[in-house]
Amino acid sequence: MRHHLILRVITKLIAPPIILFALYVQFHGDYSPGGGFQAGVIFAAALILFGIVFGLRKVKRVLPPWLVIRLAAFGVLLYGGTGVVSLFVGKSFLDYSALASYPKDGQHYGIIAVELGVGIAVATVMVAIYYAFASRTPRINDEDW
């Protein structure tokens, strides 16, 4: 898409705010609509937009495929790990009350950790699926669209 000037300029302008918005949705999710699932999808949407307009090679330089797969596994493990930690500090699996001195604080920490795990897992899973599809795509001529 080298000659689509408008698309390239708009993408450059819009991709960073999308990522910022994804982070807002991620970390403000307990006060307003949002959370890990939405943030992950929005984050992935920004990267996919970048990849569509500037080419797969550039976006793979930002987030290489080997890292994507490992981060997806890390997200799931962060979720499970939070549960295991709460198991070891004396409560049931995924009961965060014992993570801090006050149960309410513990719940809050637990929710933030778990949502972060979900966000990382969902974002990287979506990007991995996009890589899988886009790596196979034959070159599309602009006349075809």
């Binding site: 959370g35 699932f37 999808v41 699926i129 899988a132 599809f133 196979r136």
Partner: peptide, 20 residues
């Protein structure tokens, strides 16, 4: 439903991969 939507898109991707 919130979780089901995200699971839904993941399984849709699996179906599309099968189509490919």
């Amino acid at each position: 439903i919130l979780t089901a939507i995200v699971v839904g898109v993941a399984t849709t991707a699996l179906g599309l991969a099968l189509v490919v």
